[in-house]
Computed example of a mutant assay.
Amino acid sequence: MATSRDVARVAGVSQSTVSYVMSGRRSISPETRKRVLDAIEQLTYQPNAGARALASQRTQVVGLVVPFGPAADTAGLLPFIETIASCARAEDHDVLLVTADEGAAGLIRLAGRALCDAIVLMGIGADDARIPVAATLSVPVILIGVPDDSAGLHCVDVDFALAGALAVDELAGLGHDRVVLIGHPAEVIERDINFVRRFQRGAAAAAERHGIGYSVVAPVPPDTAGAREAVERALEGGGLPGIVVPNSQAVGPVLHALVERGLVPGRDISLIGLCTDAAAEATTPAVTNVSLEPRDVSRRAMEILFRLLDRDGDDPAQLVELIPPRLTRRDTTLPAP
């Protein structure tokens, strides 16, 4: 059976060059790359994963920690998971998905048993007990989310403060003098998931800048009855407010509750959801939305993670990177005046 040494001999290069061609971790000239690939084809070389892991002290696995609680938006998480898996495969890595909410113990288990080369941590709380532990692990860790204190770990996320401001700016521009946020379930609020406060801060600041009313209805149980009650509370006080739904799972139920009351979004009232473009387009009527940019966030997180894994590379200087969201007008907001 051919080995990487045989490939290097036939191609007239070093074994490290063969490794770089296969991993893509170094810039190799087209001519050298072609010689190596031709040698691999000539020898029908297949790298042995076990031997490669022993030699490099790498598992070729990325751990993805995504706690799935009762209020988890599994549909919203799917684009993140798909993109992370695709980026990992492009770097010849697999993904180990960890969904149990084990806290810091789960991270220690992943790193301590050498189950993975690096960890992507999601579902970040503003004050997350996992972060101090993650910062001490022997493997690189990147956060999708921004805690109050990242303990020196790299973070990538949507700019949720900007997302909140975009939604309120749009509603103010449509003539609404009051904005109501229909918020998250109790579990999300109790866990103090980092993006909730960031979104609300941006929305509140924008409302103050425009001189319009602003309030939050929360917690909102994740069911039809919860959406009905939230809509009732949002409509108290007279007039028709602009409604923002930063919980993507609640967008559909809130739309339904409004229609039940005889209010047609886009004709009688404005509603903006914080959700993926795919979810916004699949809803009837199609929802004006501020995007979560899950694929852009995931791609950037994985780019940084593999830079951290590259022992010879430089770590990115910027610890927190925020991806700007976009607002797309669809059918659930009033026409512009």
Rank of each mutant, 00 (worst) to 15 (best):
A2L: 01
A8I: 07
S14A: 01
S23E: 06
G24I: 00
P30S: 10
E31C: 10
V36N: 06
D38H: 01
A39Y: 00
L43V: 06
T44G: 14
Y45S: 07
R52V: 14
L54P: 12
S56Q: 15
T59Y: 08
V62Y: 13
G76C: 11
P79E: 12
F80R: 06
I84F: 10
A85R: 14
S86D: 15
C87R: 14
A90T: 11
E91C: 13
V98I: 13
A100E: 15
G106M: 11
L107M: 12
R113M: 11
G125A: 14
D127F: 04
D128P: 00
P132E: 05
T136P: 00
L137T: 06
L137D: 06
P140V: 06
I142C: 11
G145K: 02
A151K: 06
V158S: 12
A163C: 04
A172G: 13
L181S: 05
G183P: 07
E187F: 11
F195T: 09
R197T: 12
F199H: 05
Q200F: 00
H210V: 10
I212Y: 02
I212V: 03
G213N: 01
P221Q: 11
A227Y: 03
A234P: 01
I243C: 01
V244L: 06
P246M: 07
A250H: 14
A257L: 02
L258G: 09
L263F: 09
G266Y: 12
G266T: 05
I269S: 00
A282H: 12
T288V: 10
T288P: 09
P294L: 01
R295C: 13
A301N: 06
P316H: 02
P316L: 04
L319W: 01
E321A: 13
P324Y: 05
R329A: 13
R330N: 12
L334S: 05
